[in-house]
Amino acid sequence: MRPADACDNEVMKMQITPFLAFDADPFDPFAALRRLRPDAARGIPASDRAGAFPAVNLWQGADSIAVTAEIPGVAPADIDITVHDDRVVISGERRGPEADDEAVWLRRERAYGRFSRAIRLPYRVDPDRVEARFQDGVLRIELQRPEADKPRRIHIASA
């Protein structure tokens, strides 16, 4: 069991290589991610897995990324999201039950305290176009690739 006030502060380590020789689509920034953890979540119960908090899933859109995270027991007001370049940081605090000297723990599987997690995205995102929603303990953030950074097909003019 993890100590109550020691939520992991861990930066997700992802190696993103922009150009990979054997990728079907050399402009697919998620290709390296998919290869990294081909079936990370298959068959693993979410509630029994130790690791960084909060656990995140990443979603790939046309020119956008969605990050979903399980943060049960935290009020939306206690969650902070900051976006800078290709990095999104989810931090906050999960408050424990009120101190009660007479109360006895019969079972303690949940962790309380401050948490912070930085997630490196496959590309830079526009910090002015970030949407975040929180429902039933699940956070969902949608981030957009800046117009100027989108890959462009270059037309070769015939001589």
């Binding site: 998919r34 953890r37 990370a40 690791g51 990443l58 979603w59 859109g61 399980e70």
Partner: peptide, 8 residues
């Protein structure tokens, strides 16, 4: 969106 990475 399609899933690119999963921890849970």
């Amino acid at each position: 969106f399609r899933q690119a990475y999963a921890e849970y």
